[in-house]
Write a protein that binds this DNA or RNA. Structure first.
Length: 587
DNA sequence: GCCGTTTTCGGCCCGACTGTTTTCAGTCG
């Protein structure tokens, strides 16, 4: 029996420190301290929250000063927070500045200056107070504010209250692609591209950003705002239009001169952090990069036809949009260490789908035909196991029958392999829903949690460990169980799960279902860094959901995955060899 | 408050939009 230790709240400390630093930054600005000081705190906050290990390790080893943006002063404050859970400087600031102003600051249209002005003139220190006074028409009476800003603030308060105004990529992306296709129909349009987070394939999207090149912007804007799907036009001029489409998304279209298209695309793709770093690099190299053009040291404009030329001019290989999150991609590019990202064409099969045998909508044969049409070499049928009664989970008998059906089906194909698998439930006590003799007969075993979401961090992590330790388990499916927009995942300690998977040679799933995308990109990167292979599965419950694969691929790419990190890029012979090897190793 | 083989001092991304202003500050991406 090995020692069991859950690294409790590994990243919580990091979040605590960065959250406090962000508060300090805001409060400093409210207090009127110079902005470069506040910026220093924000920079350190960002470093710390995206640190792959606990800040405590840096503190213990007296290595805090190694962190970019952390100097003597911030190191001292970090130590204080780690040791006492408090930060006296933050507390002092809260004495000097009403902390409620931090909420006021969340309202779009209100920055630190405005927050201070409305505080000084009306004594407003909370969102509720702000809303009352705005409704009463008091804000417009303040010098330099006015009616328009008051309206904007009221709308902003609504937005903050509605909170997470983001939608799933799985909804936004098709809308964005449809609108882009529609725009290509307009003859005045010389080029169209998705930009912003939808181009970077972020898991959720605020607004959809589109970019078009045209010499006749007004014609393009007329066409765009007149599209049948456009429900409401929020704003429009000859450079930008913002509309709400019938699905409720806000879509922004920017139209630029064709010669600025590539630089604009780079700029509007973001992320902000990526662009910031790229501009800094440009400056170092004597260039000036803006959304309009790239200027060399003499102020001459460098002709840029393709986005890749921008990177090339700065001495970098092309950085795919999925990597542009300011998570070290520019450094990696400089050092020639960018990953060769996995691509859709690399995927040879899907190792987790359902059929009507449990809660799927299609027959095995339909799923297989659909997978063949996609050019796959294999498909693993992994229906639910018996304890998941709500999903019509299979018992031993039905599972055995299903295996026979699959065996018959395999007789019919010489170009396709159907794997007999199961998505076996990890029960509340960590045991699996089938005995070893049953699991041992299958080609592949996918294990996952569907019950007992309320278990504590330690308990549920131990439960996942039990599955990872089981010799017959190949894949851990949707490792956190989250359903975005519906429920949070369980409190599993993912850092520990990744380490355990590495130790036990298990595969972690990237579930491609748009509301799961579980593992998420950051953890995918951690997993592959530690040598844990991943698999991109759709968990399809119908033939249509097989198409969700792209969203999983995007997550893998955002997690810096190369083809070799993803097991369902293996051709069928090698996949079978690999699975067989695992099983032989048991004997 | 941090950072640097171009600087240990003097910088810290750049540009557009908004609203209110008569020349610009504040906010945003």
């Amino acid at each position: 029996m090995g020692s069991y230790e859950v690294k409790k709240g590994v990243r919580m400390k990091n979040l605590q420190v960065s959250w406090m630093f962000r508060q300090i930054a805001d409060l400093m600005e409210l207090k009127g301290e110079p902005s470069y000081k506040a910026r220093a705190y924000r920079k350190a906050a960002k470093t710390i929250e995206s640190l792959p290990v606990s800040i405590e390790e840096y503190s213990r080893g007296d290595r805090l000063l190694e962190l970019p943006g952390v100097g003597v002063n911030l190191a001292r404050k970090i130590k204080e927070i780690l040791e006492t859970g408090r930060c006296s400087y933050l507390e002092q600031l809260k004495e000097e500045v009403p902390p409620g102003l931090l909420d006021v600051l969340q309202v779009p249209g209100i920055g630190t200056k405005t927050a201070v002005v409305i505080y000084r003139s009306l004594g407003i220190t909370s969102l509720d107070e702000l809303e009352r006074q705005a409704r009463a028409g008091k804000l417009r009476e303040i010098p330099r504010l006015g009616r328009r800003l008051e309206e904007k603030i009221l709308a902003g308060i609504e937005f903050v209250k509605r909170k997470d105004g983001r939608v799933l990529l799985g909804w936004a992306r098709p809308v964005a692609e449809g609108l882009a296709a529609a725009l290509r129909e307009e003859p005045a349009v010389e080029g169209v591209a998705l930009a912003g987070s939808v181009r970077r394939w972020r898991e959720t999207i605020g607004d959809i950003d589109l970019l078009a090149a045209s010499r006749e912007p007004d014609r393009v804007m007329n066409f765009f705002t007149g599209l049948p799907v456009v429900e409401r036009v929020l704003a429009r001029d000859s450079t930008t239009s913002s509309v709400v489409v019938e699905t409720g998304f806000q879509v922004n279209l920017r139209v630029v001169e064709p010669r600025s298209f590539a630089t604009a695309l780079q700029y509007f793709t973001g992320s902000v952090d990526h662009n910031l770093q790229l501009r800094r690099l440009a400056t170092e190299k004597g260039f000036k990069l803006s959304e309009y053009d790239l200027e060399d040291a003499d102020g001459g404009k460098v002709l840029i036809r393709e986005e890749a030329e921008i990177y090339a001019r700065l001495g970098l290989p092309f950085i795919p949009p999925e990597l542009r999150e300011g998570r070290g991609e520019i450094e990696a590019a400089i050092e020639g260490q960018l990953p060769r990202l996995v691509e859709p064409g690399d995927i040879k099969g899907d190792l987790h789908v359902h059929t009507r045998w449990s809660d799927g909508a299609c027959e095995i044969e339909e799923m297989v035909e659909a997978a063949r049409k996609k050019g796959y070499q294999y498909l693993a049928i992994c229906d639910h196991s018996k304890s998941l009664a709500v999903a019509n989970g299979l018992d031993e008998k039905r599972l055995a029958r299903q295996r026979e059906v699959i065996a018959e089906l395999n007789q019919r194909y010489d170009d396709f392999t159907v794997l007999a698998g199961v998505e076996v439930d990890i029960r509340k006590d960590g045991t699996l829903d089938f005995p070893d003799e049953v699991l041992g007969e299958l080609d592949i075993v996918v294990a996952s949690i569907h019950t007992g979401f309320g278990q504590g961090r330690e308990e549920i992590t131990r439960r996942v460990f039990a599955a990872l330790d089981h010799p017959l388990v190949d894949i851990l499916a949707h490792p956190t169980g989250r359903l975005m927009g519906k429920r949070r995942g369980y409190e599993v300690d993912l850092e520990a799960v990744i380490a355990r998977a590495a130790e036990k040679g298990k595969v972690l799933e990237i579930n491609a279902s748009p509301d799961r995308l579980d593992l998420s990109d950051v953890y995918v990167r951690k997993a592959v860094q530690q040598g844990v292979p991943v698999v991109i599965n759709t968990d399809a419950h119908s033939i249509y959901a097989l198409d969700d694969m792209v969203f999983g691929i995007a997550v893998a790419r955002r997690g810096w995955c190369e083809k070799g990190d993803v097991i369902n890029t293996l051709p069928v012979v090698e996949l079978l060899e690999w699975l067989g090897g695992r099983r032989r190793g048991l004997k």
